[in-house]
Nucleic acid binder design. Sequence first.
DNA 1: ACCTGAACACCGTTCAAGT
DNA 2: ACCTGAACACCGTTCAAGT
Lengths: 233, 233
Amino acid sequence: MVSETETTTQPRIPLNKERVFRAAIAIADEGGIESLTMRRLAEHLGVEAMSLYYHVDNKEAVLDGVIDAVMSEVEEATGGFDPPTDGVDWQIALRERILTARRVMLRHPWAVGVFETRTEISMLTMRYFDALLGLLREGGFSYDLAHHAMHVLGSRSLGFAQELFSDNPDDADEDAAAMLEQMADKLPYLAGMMMEVAHDDPDSTLGWCDDQTEFEFGLDLILDGLERLRTKA
Amino acid sequence: MVSETETTTQPRIPLNKERVFRAAIAIADEGGIESLTMRRLAEHLGVEAMSLYYHVDNKEAVLDGVIDAVMSEVEEATGGFDPPTDGVDWQIALRERILTARRVMLRHPWAVGVFETRTEISMLTMRYFDALLGLLREGGFSYDLAHHAMHVLGSRSLGFAQELFSDNPDDADEDAAAMLEQMADKLPYLAGMMMEVAHDDPDSTLGWCDDQTEFEFGLDLILDGLERLRTKA
DNA sequence: ACCTGAACACCGTTCAAGT
DNA sequence: ACCTGAACACCGTTCAAGT
């Protein structure tokens, strides 16, 4: 009970939301989102699991906070969600902004999936989308077309296209040949495609797709289509 | 030990994979994918949880089987994944097929999410994508462009666009007005869009988006873009 | 061949209690 | 103000044992 003011035993920094969210992101980055448990999170912070509930309502609140933190990384990367820089072509500006967001999201590949499960959208997140909408408006879009545009872009507006097939490089190599065998009759077109790829680039297998290239291809296809609709209307 | 051959006590039908997958789908349809647990699944089948493991390796295998079952619903709905009906415009054929798949997927909204977590792709699933690829090829696409096309379509090729924001109709109505208030300065473009919508259709609020309309808008935008690239090349 | 009881190592969360 | 122990109601899964 005596004052032990200046003992150097453990800094004794109390927990706070910031530190909780940071630790959560670090865990998810390292082991995937399914490795993020309240117990593991507490452990990383040198604390018992129950202590987390003093700072945070529940796990959902952790996920909300984590998404908000990721969005502020995006904000930092884009240099703020300011009003659109006028004068510059909307298509170039939007493309640039989305690719910047992508650079952040690639550091947290689990984030889009979590994003989609959110029921509350933070102010920061809304400001991101408001800024995108602003780029479209200032680029000459009607609200109606801009609204459609946001829907078409979907998760692509965050720089992330959910890949339907995550290429698993393990199997791809080992039985690619055996697969091509039975593909030839049952899956003629996939077989044909693979054979052409194999011909053009003998070293490649099923895992040949380049995510960044495909992302940009899809993004440009959509942006071009939108520009066409904009000028037509 | 005496033969009680014809006692009418409980039909005593042994479990099998088919019944397990069917029950799993029913549970997910009713309560969402997170309500699908091995224990609940067993209960639905009038059996102990451990009994499932006699018929199925683990929960992952259940999910694999469930996706395969959904894909066979798609197959039935499209009348088989046959070689493309030649002569008919690729764009119309592909659009039709995807919208048919969508009708099935809307009955199992959780399915796309599960699909994305699969590491093994079933033969039936591959045949679906082979058929889509076939439609493109027969429509005059190079393998290279067709491959890009599959990437752009992504989960849309299954009839499902992952909605970034699931409109929650609860909050939308109650504090839409209050929200517009502070939106006006911090979220100028979103506010402007809402105000225009409110003006055009006074009864509507944030939950005004029509998923089917937006899906078809996006699909057509992409298909048109692909056709343009096809003829240009 | 098919099913089960008991058990294990995990979850998220509550609540009364400690400092 | 901040943290914890003990406990609860859940998970998926194994394994030896029952019929």
